[in-house]
Structure formats: structure tokens, C-alpha cells
Simulated assay, not measured.
Amino acid sequence: MDGFDAHQRQMETLCGRLELIADLLPDQADPTLCKFTSDGIVKTLSDAQAFEEKELFPALQALSLLETDMKEIFAQLREEHYEDLCFAEEVRDNLRAIIEGHPSQSANATGYMLRGFFEKLRRHMAYERYLVSALRTKKAPGTPDAS
């Protein structure tokens, strides 16, 4: 499962940056950090989601790790991906508005939005780590190593 750990690290870094920005609002938000984060948020998230859908989901499906219908679980996760991507675009736009000096909402509202976003991502990532740990312990014969 080449790439999983790298995507997890990138997502954790993104969440850490968003948390720092939220902590520094309203008066100490670093424009450089806001710009760097806003520039990369959608790509980082979409790259991780593409990996999950093309690599992780098929590997999990092949092993039938859960006793339920995996198709329903993956459909739910794909819906969450779409919602997360829309949310990421909204976060990006709000960060850019801060950089430009024309915030579209109060600092409290932006901080609340950032926290809602990165906490949701962290829950999603924790669930994925759970699934991957199962994948790593229950490998089918001939299945590549999940590391």
C-alpha cells in the first residue's frame, strides 16, 4: 500500500497548519502560512482521496475485511470525499480573503470553520488507519505489503 503513510503525513501537516491558523486568529494569523495552506489544501486533499479510491478501497475490498457490504461503506466514504473537497474549497477561499485583508466572516467564525474541517479530517484519517491496520495484519496471499 505504497503511499498511504505519506498521504497521512501530508494530511496531518495540513491539519496542524489549519489548527495553528485557527489558534492565531484574529490578530496573529501569519499571512505566509495562510497563503501556503490555502494554495495547497485542495491538491493535498484531492491527492489523498484519489489514493484512497484507487489503491486503498480496492485492497480492502479484495480482502473482505469487514463482515458488512463494503460497497456501502465505500459509497459513504466517497460522499464524504466530495463533501470534504467542497469544504476545503470554502476554507481555501476564506484563507485567501484573510490574506487579501477582506475576510468574508468574523475571525471567530473562520476559526470555528477551520476547527470543524481539520477535526473532521482527523476522524476520517483515524478510521482509515484502523482499516489499514486490519489490511496490514490480514493480507491475502500474493497481496503486496501494505506499508
Rank of each mutant, 00 (worst) to 15 (best):
A146D: 02
R17E: 13
M125C: 06
D93M: 03
C86Q: 12
T13L: 15
S104A: 04
E90A: 09
P31A: 13
E83D: 04
A109T: 05
S106T: 15
H124E: 04
T143Y: 09
A62G: 15
Q76L: 15
E55N: 13
Y112K: 09
V132N: 04
M113A: 10
E79R: 14
K139E: 06
C34Y: 03
I73T: 12
I73E: 00
G16P: 05
S133E: 13
Q8N: 01
K43L: 10
L18Y: 02
A109P: 00
S104T: 11
E79Y: 01
S38K: 09
A22P: 12
C15I: 00
M125K: 06
E90R: 15
Q49M: 12
C86R: 11
L14N: 05
K54N: 08
L25I: 09
G111M: 10
C34S: 05
P31D: 10
A48P: 02
F118I: 02
I41E: 00
E128K: 14
D145H: 07
K54G: 06
G101F: 07
A97D: 06
Q10T: 05
E55A: 12
A22S: 14
D39H: 12
T68I: 15
D39F: 06
S46R: 10
L65V: 08
Q49G: 06
R96K: 14
A88W: 14
L77K: 09
L25F: 12
G101P: 00
D27C: 08
P144I: 01
R92F: 07
T32L: 15
P26Q: 03
T110M: 15
T68H: 08
S106N: 04
A6C: 02
L45E: 00
E79K: 15
A146W: 08
E79M: 13
P58Q: 01
D30N: 15
G40R: 13
A48D: 04
R92P: 02
R9K: 13
Q105C: 14
K43T: 11
L60N: 03
K35H: 10
K35C: 08
A97W: 12
A146I: 08
L131D: 00
R129T: 05
R92C: 08
H124D: 11
R92E: 07
A22I: 11
D84L: 15
G3P: 08
Q76A: 12
L65W: 06
D93Y: 01
G16W: 03
N94V: 02
G16V: 01
E19Y: 00
A109I: 00
G3M: 07
Y127S: 04
R92D: 04
A29T: 10
A59L: 13
G111V: 10
I98R: 05
E119I: 12
C15F: 05
H7L: 11
E53H: 08
F87Q: 09
Y82G: 08
I41M: 01
I21A: 03
E119C: 09
E52N: 11
T68N: 07
R129N: 13
L56F: 09
E83F: 14
E90T: 09
Y130V: 11
Q61G: 10
S106W: 06
F118N: 07
T13M: 11
E83M: 11
Q10R: 14
Y82K: 13
Y112D: 10
D5I: 10
H124G: 04
R122M: 13
E72H: 12
E79G: 14
T137L: 12
V42G: 01
I21M: 14
D69W: 09
P141M: 03
Y82C: 06
F74C: 04
K71P: 03
D30H: 07
Y82H: 14
P58I: 05
H124T: 05
A59D: 05
I21C: 07
